[in-house]
Write a protein that binds this DNA or RNA. Sequence first.
DNA 1: CTCTTAACCTGGACGC
DNA 2: TGCGTCCAGGTTAAGA
Length: 270
Amino acid sequence: MPELPEVETTRRGIAPAVEGRRIDTVIVRNAALRWPVPDELPALLAGQTVTAVRRRAKYLLFDVEPGTALLHLGMSGQLRVVAADAPLRKHDHVDVVLQGGQCLRLHDPRRFGSLLWQPAGTRHPLLAGLGPEPLGPDFSGDWLYRQSRGRRAAVKTFLMDQRIVVGVGNIYATEALHAAGIDPRRAAGRVSAARYAALAEAVRAVLAESITRGGTTLRDYVDPQGSPGWFRLQLAAYERAGQPCGRCGGTIQRVVLGQRASYYCAGCQR
DNA sequence: CTCTTAACCTGGACGC
DNA sequence: TGCGTCCAGGTTAAGA
């Protein structure tokens, strides 16, 4: 489900309820996520005060004194702020019960998400090797250009590689390439520096605009208050096969790249 | 190294 | 109504 804008919207939605708040208990009903939730996690978090909720790539990071809890929402994860006694739904796998009667509830039907622990002063292997934040200072067209030299994989697959740049998933890679006028099938190593400059700008613009609209709800994404995101209304290419391109009037095509559905306009994406 | 593929899992949409 | 097939905002391990 979530790419950077949805994770960031989730972060902003939970921060007021969580930051500076003490954790009463952590209830793990089903530890069988992408990786097993560590047995010791509830004991590590109970009684701790959350000093900050951060985001790195598509991970939410909950800082407490002994370390950081890492939460990834996978494809179908939702994190909601609910009353601690709110009725349970199927697939409500974890509750972080906060002092004051609210709780953070993780709901994840497909269980591709993960909840892991990083002791203070260490770096979890999953966070090692991640590329720059697309909305940060280290991401640029020049960076993309240099990383892409000699690569034959499709530029869309390259753009979704979290070692190259984080946070860009299937929707936003599709949209950014459309906005930049680049054919997603083109080999990454055969895109010019000038066009990577345009692509980097398109990535930033599409992510920033989606955040302002609360992310994209295609099927089941909701923010921590249960509201959908509205960026879907802005999608120019994603899931628009057969429809006219808003820029050139051509027809949006569907193709599969790296096992993921991709959409592009044969008229204006080269 | 780079690249491709299978796998993890559930549920909704669709065709018969 | 039911059953089979395909598809879905992600990521990793394994193999070529």
